[in-house]
Design a protein around this nucleic acid. Structure first.
Length: 300
DNA sequence: TGACAGTGCAGGGATAAGGT
DNA sequence: ACCTTATCCCTGCACTGTCA
């Protein structure tokens, strides 16, 4: 089970001069709606390549349902979260890279300035969803598969080949989509709410051990509680309580793995004083009781 | 964006049963 | 004996739909 929580603030790049990484996310058959991608944002680009199963990704307020072969492009700085949309296994790749990977060292590179730079600095954006049924999807998918193969193969010089492939991908995307840009007004309409909620999510990450009410959360983002509930759901795809519980269960997962605390102690530690309720919650999100999850995790 | 009312469910308490 | 899990029941609050 992979919850790339680490993607949010400190995506792991083994070499700072090569800001590129690929995460393979595999999720066993679970209840529809099970979270598959921790809600997060970062200054990097993220491209999701669906392999198996179906998932719903909420990216800057908008839901996108994706199936095998679909490509999801998460723009730099976008708030995003993913949920399983089926009961079968879910498998996809998350390709994460910083704009610095493709930034030209040459200050006067007109081709780079025209075709690449506008997307790196955010003045232009690609469409978020590239369906497997789109005629051009196969080309982009093929490039991504080569990137994954090269990255996983780790042969000598793979860094340069991956970088070259990403140049090809950006250029092909730019060739395809540059004439069809979204108006600036559309982009601006979402950015305000997203920025507001980033502040709140930081607060929740730091205070999930404490009770957090809707009223408190609403005051952090300067909305009244009624309007807050709707806007939060619209922006993130989940309710406030669902999100807080998800953060708590993830924290519990870490404690189960890395500490000797009892289930009761962990329940208290994550702000869930009642161990009965904690067990119920954990099972709801993970499909298995906490003690059993610990046994399975330590065995494997 | 705010307010209101109705609905649903999160969360807690109590209890019992099973496992170590 | 202690810990963990499951189940039932109740209360209060979160959430939604609607209207202004």
């Amino acid at each position: 089970m992979t919850y790339p929580q680490e993607l949010r603030e400190h995506t792991y790049f083994s070499d700072p001069s090569y800001p590129f990484n690929i995460f393979r996310i595999r999720q066993e058959p679970s209840n529809m709606g099970a979270p598959s991608l921790y809600m997060h944002w970062h200054e990097h680009f993220e491209i999701l390549l669906m392999v198996e199963g179906r998932a719903i990704f909420h990216i800057d307020s908008k839901p996108f349902e994706a199936g095998p072969g679909d490509i999801v492009i998460v723009p730099s700085g976008a708030l995003h979260v993913g949920y399983s949309a089926g009961i079968g296994p879910l498998h996809y790749y998350a390709i994460v890279f910083n704009a610095a990977l493709l930034k030209s060292n040459k200050t006067t590179d007109p081709m780079h300035a025209v075709y690449i730079a506008p997307y790196l600095d955010g003045s232009l954006v690609f469409p978020i969803m590239l369906r497997h049924t789109d005629t051009t999807n196969a080309v982009f998918k093929s490039v991504l598969e080569q990137v994954i193969q090269e990255f996983e193969g780790k042969q000598r010089g793979h860094e340069l080949l991956v970088k070259s492939q990403m140049y090809i991908l950006f250029t092909l995307l730019s060739r395809q989509f540059m004439p069809d840009q979204l108006p600036e007004k559309v982009k601006a309409s979402h950015s305000r709410n997203v920025d507001r909620f980033k502040k709140l999510l930081l607060y929740i990450d730091a205070h999930y051990q404490e009770p957090i009410t809707v009223a408190q959360a609403a005051s952090i983002v300067n909305l009244n509680p009624y309007h807050f509930c709707k806007t939060f759901k619209k922006t993130t795809g989940s309710t406030l309580i669902e999100y807080i519980n998800f953060v708590r269960v993830n924290a519990a997962e870490k404690l189960l793995l890395e500490s000797d605390l009892t289930v009761t102690e962990i329940a208290e530690h994550i702000g869930c004083g009642n161990p009965n309720y904690f067990t119920k919650l954990f099972k709801q999100y993970k499909g298995i009781a906490p003690s059993q999850w610990r046994k399975d995790a330590l065995r494997s």
